[in-house]
């Protein structure tokens, strides 16, 4: 099992409505799960909680057999660097670093021997960006930026990839390319959680979980969620 969420609830201090209510689910190796639902239903909260960025009020999050919130903040950061990859709708590339350096920024949090620049270059080549290594994010198209963000997420060979609306700003062609990469990652044995509004993107996942008011409303495939 790559990731497990056990009875997680989360209420933001400045909101009276609970963002997550007793959510439980599991992600196996090779599994590609899409989390759908209307705005404010708790999709992003679930993703951030699973990614070790947002401590839940109750419940446990286990990734790669480690209780994520049992770690200290710096241990959790190092854990994220090694095991979890993130892709966001806004790409969040560092504007003053070139493409290669943006990908290599993922090694800042790595302990021990970091990946070599060669691996970053190879990844970028896979994503069709071999001739863009020295370009700044401002010089790239939105599709290229998202592919750089994907390469950064994959640099440290994580076991879990969390993608929050990664196709939200992309045209159809680029969106397909990103979704292909997510599928490929799952095919290589990783687990993917895709948060999306886009039914077309959700359809690429093996499993679709619909969230409504912080709770899992439906599970459209063979359910792996814990009761």
């Amino acid at each position: 099992m790559v990731a497990e969420v056990h009875g997680v609830s989360k209420t933001y201090r400045d909101h009276s409505v609970a963002a997550l209510r007793d959510v439980s689910l599991q992600l196996d190796s090779g599994q590609f799960v899409a989390v759908c639902g209307p705005s404010g239903c708790g999709k992003s909260t679930l993703l951030l909680t699973l990614g070790g960025l947002l401590r839940p009020d109750t419940g446990r999050v286990v990734v790669n057999e480690t209780d994520v919130y049992g770690l200290s903040p710096n241990e959790r950061a190092a854990f994220r660097a090694k095991w979890i990859g993130f892709v966001f709708q806004q790409f969040h590339l560092v504007p003053y670093l070139n493409v290669l350096e943006n990908v290599l920024a993922a090694e800042l949090g790595m302990r021990g021997s970091p990946p070599t620049p060669d691996r970053a270059a190879t990844l970028l080549e896979q994503f069709g960006l071999a001739d863009r290594l020295q370009h700044r994010p401002g010089q790239l198209s939105t599709g290229e930026r998202q592919r750089v963000a994907m390469a950064r997420a994959l640099l440290n060979e994580p076991c879990l990839l969390l993608a929050d609306e990664p196709t939200g700003n992309l045209d159809e062609e680029n969106a397909d390319r990103v979704l292909d990469e997510l599928s490929n990652f799952a095919d290589r044995g990783g687990a993917v959680m895709l948060v999306t509004h886009d039914p077309r993107a959700a359809s690429r996942a093996q499993q679709q979980i619909n969230l409504l008011e912080g709770q899992i409303a439906s599970d459209l495939t063979t359910a792996t969620r814990l009761e």
Partner: peptide
Amino acid sequence: ILRAIGTS
């Protein structure tokens, strides 16, 4: 984002 990708 640097914090998210693991920078201490």
